Simulated scan of single mutants.
Amino acid sequence: MQTMQATSPGGNLPLVRRLEAVGFRAWPAATVIYDGSWQIRLSGGHPSKRLNCVVPLDPSDHRDLALRLEKARKRFHSYGRPLTLRETPLAPPQLIDHLSQQGWSRFETVKVLTANLAQLELPETLDRLPSHDIGRFIDVSLSLAGEDPGLKPALAEVLTAIKPPTGLFMIENAEGAPLAVALCVQDNDLAGVLGFSVSAGQRRQGLGTEILSSALRWARISGARTAWLQVVTDNEPALALYRKFGFQDAYEYHYWREA
């Protein structure tokens, strides 16, 4: 199987649709509403942009832009969230032009990468077995991300809502201090790596390679053929690591917010 990747700057739209679909299942929002082909994702407990955004999924669906954005704004405000839109290659160009004309701005760009698991050189055995302790996994994740421990119930809600098989990977030192963490979601022949993080004081010591190798090996054993992940474009250390593993660009998406 060849590596799944985009074939043009606009992206391979069938591939984009498939990766978007598995991405939604891998990181499920509490509430999902459709306005035509626009997916409106909201989660009252967790502030993640991926859980609180409008995602247009059909380049031809650009009717009544101002009205539909206003309806979405009211929904977001009812959740106490600012209206945020995620632009993938599936977004109508007319919508993006409208946002620009209305003073909206892009504020983050994320790369979606894929790799052929069959071609990766991975250990024959798992250095790290996946954990089933969701509570501990959440504690480690929040600690490494420097996020509010008060988000634990909201993150637990997200993780327990994931339907496909999941592998929770953690590395801690002898005293139990968190060093690295990764979540792998295996959805048929696709496996997504999410929440990948290494302690700032422990980077460039092989921990990222170790935990990523274990997650990908577990995914391959579980039947996945292609791995995917998402990374912000300015995270150069993570991008360098992923490139070493053979990950290649599939497409990019952008977040937009109002002025």
Rank of each mutant, 00 (worst) to 15 (best):
A200V: 11
Q248L: 14
L15K: 01
P89C: 04
L99S: 02
I162T: 07
A200N: 11
L65R: 06
A180K: 04
V112N: 08
L151E: 04
G246H: 06
R220F: 11
R63C: 07
P47M: 05
A30W: 06
S199Y: 06
R204A: 11
S143L: 13
V140M: 04
R204T: 09
A200Y: 09
T160R: 12
R25G: 01
L65H: 05
R128A: 11
A21N: 01
A180C: 09
L151Q: 05
D133A: 10
L183W: 09
S214N: 04
G36T: 02
R243Y: 09
A145H: 15
S214F: 06
P28F: 03
M170R: 10
L194R: 11
T114Y: 08
V55G: 02
T125I: 14
R136H: 11
E87D: 03
T125D: 14
L95M: 09
A30R: 12
L69D: 00
R18W: 04
S78Y: 08
G146T: 11
E20Q: 12
I134Y: 06
G45Y: 00
E121N: 14
G192V: 00
E252R: 15
V22A: 09
G80N: 02
H132I: 12
L90T: 01
V181Q: 13
D127K: 09
D187L: 00
G201S: 11
R204D: 10
R225A: 14
R220E: 11
L95P: 00
G150L: 11
T31E: 15
Q202L: 13
L13G: 03
D64G: 10
G44P: 01
R18G: 04
G36M: 02
I96A: 05
D148R: 08
T226K: 03
R63Y: 07
N235M: 10
A161G: 01
R225P: 00
S105Q: 15
L239D: 06
D249L: 15
L99H: 03
P92V: 00
G208M: 03
L129C: 09
K152S: 08
Q205G: 04
L126N: 06
F196D: 03
V110Q: 09
R81N: 02
Y251N: 04
D249P: 10
H254I: 14
G11P: 04
V110H: 10
D127S: 14
I138F: 07
V55F: 04
I211G: 03
L57I: 08
M170L: 14
D189M: 12
L83M: 06
R18F: 03
W228D: 07
L65C: 06
A191G: 01
L212M: 14
M170E: 13
A26W: 02
Y253I: 06
R25Q: 07
K163C: 12
A21R: 03
F247A: 08
V198K: 02
Y79H: 06
V112T: 14
L129W: 12
I221L: 14
A227I: 05
F107G: 08
A219D: 07
L42K: 10
A182W: 10
T109K: 12
A29G: 04
G201N: 10
V55L: 13
N52R: 01
P47R: 05
P93N: 05
A6H: 07
Y251I: 06
D127Y: 10
H46M: 11
Q39V: 14
L15C: 01
L155P: 00
A259Y: 08
L51T: 02
T88C: 02
W256R: 05
W38V: 01
T160P: 00
